[in-house]
């Protein structure tokens, strides 16, 4: 298939700590097509962000990585750090959660947006500036010539968020990884973020949205992957997923959403150091049987896959 943009196969990440190794990502496998919005949903502490960082090769230095990440046919997990720097920001860009922390407060916003263009596209200062102004205008930051010369503190929160997206898309990346873009943000701002993301996505950019906000994922994505305790337990098309989630955890997660009556999931999230044997959800699962004590297979069903014995 030529339209696969990102292919992640057999990626595992563990981080050694004083209490033992944290198995943050276990055998993750999925692919993102070109122009596709792909969401990775799951609870905090389920290893979503680490998976995003593993793709960008921005893991903490002590993390142990294994597996293969291919981007547009190139195996980026095998690149040297120097070669990776040419990919990061150019083909795959990330948008951070908090724009106030992600921007350098002492550098003009225009300079920060122009940086990827100067570094990756080899533009001159003037060219980059003209393009920065166009980008700012595109995201309704007007007047761009004035705004370009301002510092982050002179921007309002919503404007800075848009400037961040402008910075992420500056070098025309093919894939954007957005980690928790809506955490702790009120409904109006959330809709604002959804609007700018959709604007960028309609230009043909693929997205990997890492979020715990089920409603946001539903509004934005084409396909959805559910992460539980370091494993991807279900991947499905958006409509199919919300119509009929297959994995018991996906069902429980959707039932916990306020629109569906806020039914809490019994039990609590397992420790990532001593993970439950077999299916990681079995201690909380209402359908558990003896076979759940052995590792469940990844079952492929028309256009979706699920890691559960029920469908084997």
């Amino acid at each position: 298939m030529s339209d696969v943009l990102l292919k992640v196969s057999g990626v595992s990440v563990s981080i050694p700590t004083g209490q033992g190794a944290v198995h943050a990502v276990d055998d993750a496998a999925f692919s993102i097509n070109k122009h596709e919005v792909f969401s990775l949903i799951g609870e905090s502490g389920s290893g979503k962000s680490i998976l995003g960082q593993a793709i960008m090769r921005l893991l903490p230095p002590n993390a142990v990585f294994s597996g293969k990440v291919e981007l547009g046919g190139m195996e980026i997990s095998a690149l040297s750090e120097k070669e990776m720097q040419k990919v990061r920001g150019k083909t795959v860009a990330s948008i951070a959660q908090n724009p106030y922390l992600a921007m350098n407060p002492g550098i003009r916003v225009g300079t920060q947006i122009a940086e990827p263009m100067r570094a990756h596209l080899g533009m001159s200062k003037e060219e980059a500036k003209a393009r920065t102004c166009r980008a700012l205008k595109y995201f309704d930051i007007i007047p761009p010539e004035v705004r370009e010369r301002e510092y982050p503190f002179q921007y309002s929160g919503g404007m800075l968020q848009r400037a961040m997206v402008a910075m992420g898309t500056a070098a025309d990346p093919e894939l954007i990884i957005a980690d928790e873009p809506t955490k702790g943000v009120d409904v109006l701002k959330k809709r604002n973020i959804a609007a700018i993301f959709q604007k960028v996505a309609s230009d043909g950019c693929a997205f990997l949205l890492i979020t715990h906000d089920v409603g946001f994922a539903r509004a934005m994505s084409d396909r959805i992957a559910v992460n539980y305790c370091g494993q991807i337990i279900e991947i499905a098309g958006r409509d199919a997923f919300f119509k009929e989630p297959l994995h018991p955890y996906s069902q429980a997660l959707l039932d916990a959403v306020p629109e569906r009556g806020m039914h809490p999931i019994p039990g609590s999230s397992p420790s990532m150091i001593e993970v439950p044997e077999g299916c990681r959800f079995h201690p909380r699962c209402p359908y558990k049987t003896d076979r759940c004590l052995t590792n469940p297979p990844v079952v492929k069903l028309e256009g979706r896959c699920v890691r559960c014995w029920i469908y084997a």
């Binding site: 309704d140 309002s156 929160g157 919503g158 404007m159 409904v187 109006l188 701002k189 959330k190 809709r191 604002n192 959804a194 609007a195 959709q198 409603g215 509004a219």
Partner: peptide
């Protein structure tokens, strides 16, 4: 009504008070 629209991501034309 604007809040309700925002929840359903109904109309994507967004105006924030700070704008």
């Amino acid at each position: 009504r604007a809040l309700m629209d925002a929840v359903q991501y109904a109309s994507l034309e967004v105006v924030l008070p700070e704008d």
